[in-house]
Design a protein around this nucleic acid. Structure first.
Length: 569
RNA sequence: GGCCCGGUGGUCAAGAGGUUAAGACACGGCCCUUUCAAGGCUGUAACACGGGUUCGAUUCCCGUCCGGGUCACCA
């Protein structure tokens, strides 16, 4: 990775003396007694094989994750695990207001469901790993230690501005047509004297800690992004907030400190962080730490009307992970889909290696796209069909039942009654060179196979219109008389041909096409009649096979039921 | 609006200074076929625009346009 230009000479050093800075720090953080080097010792460099990557997922516990989050998380997971590195779950709970009860548990369960497992970090039970705690609010003392350090160094200061004062600054800036923000001469409390601070403190005024930025936005630095290559950005000059009034850090401060002390090597995050990268770089430089490799992923987009839009948790609840889970998408299918979106060469690899587990694919950040990808349901379906077609009937049956048990209880009761039957149904067209691919997700599979179950059987389609009622009844009656479970597929269909011929239908469609006036129809029409009788549908898998699975009794009952229906009609 | 990131068929995308500009999904046609699914063959369809640099630009540079992101004591 390329070296980052270090921001050097202070533009406007603090007006306080070194001694005053020390006293200020002590005044603000008397309770902080640990020193920076204590933390360096507490969280040592990791002893990992060469080339091992340490990545982290840092969700905020707002109780909702969508496909876009999974997308990034999956990249993190692959990078860590394929390099024998470490994959960490860190809960970024610095915003108490937005926290949702139980969100962490939901989050972990969901991620696990989709095959993401963490080596270190927060767990449902608590946490594991030597670099914890992994919930940021529990690391308050650590952040405060470094806030204190920066104040000692004259690189941070307390700011007592109220909401109204900040608003005043913003409107003045708007009027003057300059960039908004707390910086330079607009940073009112940047040069408060020690006495002034004391005075406000005595009045119990709340304060935040801000960085005393030394950057100059006229100057640019370049940085190598793991996904996007060389990036050119202006230096930061914002005195952004490090510690909020409650003593809890902002994302910016927590991110830099945690990623340093958890010894993270690669930071994957959404491109919405690109514009604050200069904040983070200034912080890393100020603290004298080597920044990890930044990898800014593209956000997953959604089509809204004519335009693309970033996935939003508020507007797109249907893109929430639980949505896919509740519809019964197989986790492997979702993973497979995500991988095709994540790495452009994955599909190619998959085509060449149909049988290999996806873990063997060499995932790289360089192959990740940097333009916004649209979530493509068609593609997900296709991938899903492919994945399900590759599983055994047993595996599909288990998956289907697991899904139905929680999301489709009635269906579960029906399907679970006879596991052998269910398995036989799901085995239709499975295996071999060109398996059927009509199963996509749980709910859809259930719809697809429900006609096999008497409890759920209904006539979804009408009987063929070109066969009159009398003929239809006679056909069904004769069919019933001639049917034998022991016939093989060919023998069975031969009988259907004969049956068709006996009732004035062409035994072969070609004959019918040649002389349509000589026939009532052709064998296909007769099949169609049988198909509706047996399955309630005009389209279904192979009829002979269906009857083999349903058995003589059930099949015969269906035929009789159809006759009843015809008579009644 | 400032700043940042992007722009190759409908979608996802490969690609290199000279290619007939891959592939996948979707869509159309044909074949196979008792329906469906699968399979085989095949077709429609793309380098945002304008300037440069160059013998040659979709590829490099600049501008324009378009899309997205971000400008919080949210992450």
């Amino acid at each position: 990775m390329e070296e980052i230009k270090i921001i050097q000479e202070p533009l406007r050093p603090t007006s306080l003396s070194a001694e005053e800075c020390r006293r200020l720090a002590e005044l603000l953080f008397p309770q902080i007694t640990k020193r920076p080097e204590d933390y360096e010792a507490l969280y040592p460099e990791r002893d990992l094989p060469a080339g091992a990557l340490v990545t982290r997922l840092g969700p905020s516990p707002t109780g909702f994750i969508h496909l876009g989050n999974l997308y990034g998380a999956f990249a993190d997971e692959r990078l860590a695990h394929q390099s024998q590195g470490v994959f960490i779950l860190r809960i970024e709970d610095t915003d108490q207001k937005r926290e949702v009860e139980g969100a962490v548990e939901t989050l972990i369960t969901s991620l696990n469901y989709f095959g993401l497992h963490f080596d270190e970090g927060a767990t449902v039970a608590g946490e594991k790993g030597a670099y914890g705690p992994y919930r940021q609010r529990q690391r308050a003392a650590l952040y405060q230690c470094f806030a204190k350090l920066l104040i000692q160094q004259g690189r941070a200061y307390p700011c007592f501005c109220t909401e109204a004062e900040l608003e005043g600054i913003r409107s003045a800036q708007a009027e003057a047509k300059v960039n908004p923000g707390y910086y330079g001469k607009w940073a009112k409390h940047r040069d408060l004297s020690l006495a002034q601070v004391k005075e406000r403190l005595e009045k119990k005024e709340a304060f935040v800690v801000r960085l005393r930025s030394l950057g100059d936005p006229e100057r640019y630095f370049s940085i190598e992004d793991g996904i996007r290559g060389t990036l050119s950005m202006p230096e930061n000059n914002q005195d952004f907030v490090l510690l909020k009034a409650d003593g809890i850090p902002t994302y910016h401060f927590a991110h830099v400190i945690d990623d340093h002390f958890m010894r993270i090597t690669h930071i994957l995050r959404g491109e919405e962080w690109l514009s604050t990268l200069p904040y983070h770089i200034e912080l890393f430089n100020t603290l004298g730490w080597q920044p990890p490799v930044f990898c800014h992923t593209t956000v997953l987009m959604k089509m809204e009307g004519e335009t693309k839009r970033k996935l939003s948790k508020r507007k797109d609840p249907e893109l929430g992970l639980d949505y896919y889970r509740s519809l019964g998408y197989h986790p492997a299918a979702v993973r497979e889909y995500l991988l095709t979106v994540l790495n452009s060469n994955y599909e190619e690899w998959r085509l060449a290696n149909p049988g290999l587990p996806m873990e063997e694919f060499a995932f790289t950040t360089a192959k990740m796209g940097s333009s916004g990808a649209l979530f493509d349901l068609n593609k997900l379906s296709d991938v899903s069909k492919e994945v399900l077609a590759g599983l055994s009937a047993q595996a599909v049956a288990e998956f289907l039942l697991d899904w139905a048990r929680t999301y489709e209880k009635k269906a579960y009761a029906v399907m679970a009654k006879d596991p052998g039957y269910l398995k036989a149904i799901l085995n239709i067209g499975r295996g071999g060179e060109n398996p059927r691919k009509d199963l996509i997700f749980g709910k859809q599979i259930h719809e697809f196979i429900r006609f096999f179950f008497d409890e759920e059987f209904i006539y979804e389609d009408a009987f063929p219109e070109n066969i009159d009622k009398e003929t239809a009844l006679r056909l069904l009656e004769d069919y019933l008389a001639g049917y034998s479970f022991d016939d093989d597929n060919q023998a069975w269909f031969e009988k259907v041909r004969q049956l068709a011929a006996a009732h004035g239908f062409a035994a072969k469609p070609k004959d019918y096409k040649k002389n349509p006036e000589q026939y009532k129809g052709h064998v296909g029409d007769v099949s169609s009649l049988l198909r509706v009788a047996l399955s309630g549908r005009r389209n279904s898998p192979d009829l002979w096979e269906i009857q083999q699975i349903m058995g003589t009794e059930r099949s015969a009952a269906r035929i009789r039921q159809a006759m009843e229906k015809l008579r009644g009609a």
